[in-house]
Design a protein around this nucleic acid. Structure first.
Lengths: 344, 344
DNA sequence: CTGAAAGCGCTAACAA
DNA sequence: TTGTTAGCGCTTTCAG
């Protein structure tokens, strides 16, 4: 630790000297080349082990002009959505020999830009952006330098790819589920400007109309928060006749709604059925057991990396927009409406 | 591949040529040196902007032998604990000019070792390990090369620092809270081998004895999961006389316990008071409203970075063990015991 | 205040 | 199979 910084860490030259061979031979051995005589290979490995040699990734990348690093900038590490997405990315990266480095923008555009800049200066071979709130322009500009894939948000630029969940369809599935149970008065608490919220709302309306319930469409505005769901739900419960089912824009809002339902002396699903969106771990808690729409998060991560590498390793030029289908996860918060209520 | 990789990204030489100056002058300007004539500075900045020049962090670090990067390896990105810890680290890093790069070991020792190796080869100036399940030996060996700070786990090595929460004390606070409310028969669902669980258990026992309730100590084994808390709680509820308060090893287990309580036709806090640990966002949900022990997560992250930089920037040699005090967050899951039960 | 030269640790031809 | 020679893009003496 003598000098602090990178104190005399052994270099390839040290290993070469100790093993009595040339630098290039050491380099070959370190990279697992096959045409090296067993004797020398051993000598090199021994010397490296004794010295505690560890290749310097930066020096290597500098000459190779390739880092084998993919940077992942997520807008908010608190969003559990990303834990799975990143897991999917890592899983796929491991198979293809890339390393994943994550970065966060802490909910602020300027910080997201900084985080991306760090990745850019590090010369990551590709960058995956998780639901960035960043300007399109910044992203497009960066995409000129390095392949970029957006997860959870539609790409706009010509050289930017994206992997998203089909929010419209997810919302339609939610409505269809309620209708299949016998509900007709199905209301929606929307997610305001939250990512995907407008599409979820459109999907809700489309499904209601398609199923002949256009006249019963009822939307109150909310947010992707417990508070938003709570407020929105209170509004809905005050309506007469009351909706028999509520589709909230995401799980957190649904939980806020659940709370409002209980505060009002009602029970889910007995009095009101409730559907969320995202299938977060919250929804799976036995104590909550929320019917919800699941986004294939891990798969989204895997596809994001695959899509990225098509550009990095295979020179793809045409943009790609991957859209995955969500699916219903039925739990205990939905049930057929009460008999008396059905025809009211 | 020709183009793809790092296709002719402009270098400092390109900028120098375009601005009609030497490489070194460009270097000076880029680093914001003060003794450069205004005219040339402008010329350089202009050329850089036109070219879209972006310094190559690797090349710079190679010669400086310093990356200004701190690597953070977290054992599991799903653990919401880390979102705050990382936020704290980033906050502090921003103030000191360091960049933070996160890595995950996905719950497996071997992958944690890989993740750490990536950081080591990248030559991060320091590494923060979040609740690693990694062998001490691996950590100690790495600490010879680069400063390392453990968060959420006590350090063993001589050159390894740590930042932890005082689990014993937290458990004692939980017990004291129950006693203050009038409870005497306070049971504990422990967390098995989970990080900090043994200390929480010891804290529980110590507090019970200290408060003269040694004879009422009652511990059932559990895990840091909903399932573990559920099972443990069922066991406790079957006891006669029944405990009037339960302290679960963490929030998730507490929620499992809450579920068991309701399944048994009882209510919290009316029939049984419940205390968790960690103050996760779960506990704050209105629907759950769990009394719990809060670990100062953001502060832990900040201190981890500060502690790290004391070695990186200031050559500290003596190990440092930072232990922070947790605090009680009282919510709706605890209340005085029922009158009739009190003296039973 | 500015430029020339050397070199960080490594890989990539090219020789031998 | 192995060694030699050039750099990768940048900072850093050291002259001027």
């Amino acid at each position: 630790m003598a000098s602090k910084l990178q104190p005399g860490k052994p270099t390839i030259t040290d290993v070469a000297r100790r093993a009595g061979v040339s630098k290039s031979l050491v380099s070959l051995v370190m990279r697992g080349a096959d045409h090296v005589s067993p004797g020398r290979r051993q000598a090199v490995n021994k010397a490296a082990a004794e010295l505690g040699y560890r290749p310097n990734a930066m020096a290597r990348s500098l000459v190779q002009r390739r880092t084998h690093l993919v940077g992942v900038m997520v807008s908010d590490l608190h969003n559990p959505f990303f834990a799975d997405v990143v897991a999917g990315i890592q899983e796929q990266a491991e198979r293809t020999g890339y390393k994943v480095l994550v970065n966060s923008g802490n909910r602020a555009p300027a910080r997201e830009a900084d985080a991306m800049e760090t990745l850019l200066q590090l010369r990551a071979d590709g960058i995956i952006l998780g639901s960035p709130v960043l300007d399109d322009e910044v992203i497009v500009r960066a995409s000129l330098e390095v392949p970029i894939v957006l997860v959870g948000r539609e790409a706009r630029g010509p050289a930017v790819d994206s992997v998203t969940n089909d929010d419209r369809k997810g919302a339609e599935i939610a409505v269809e589920h309620c209708v299949a149970l016998g509900h007709r008065r199905i209301a929606h608490i929307d997610g305001g400007e939250g990512a995907g919220a407008p599409d979820r709302r459109r999907g809700y309306e489309a499904a209601m109309k398609r199923l002949g319930l256009g006249a019963l469409v009822s939307v109150v505005s909310g947010t992707y928060t417990e508070e938003g769901g709570h407020r929105g739900c209170l509004l809905l419960l005050a309506q007469r006749p009351r909706p028999t089912a509520i589709f909230a824009a995401n799980d957190l809002a649904a939980i806020g709604a659940l709370n409002a339902i209980e505060e009002s002396g009602l029970k889910a699903p007995d009095d009101v059925s409730l559907v969320g969106y995202d299938n977060t771990s919250l929804a799976a808690l036995r104590h909550i057991s929320l019917t919800t729409i699941h986004q294939p998060r891990i798969e989204m991560g895997q596809l994001a990396l695959i899509t990225l590498l098509e550009r990095v390793d295979r020179d793809r030029e045409e943009p790609r927009r991957v859209v995955l289908s969500p699916r219903l996860v039925a739990r205990a918060s939905t049930a057929p409406p009460r008999e008396g209520v059905r025809e009211s």
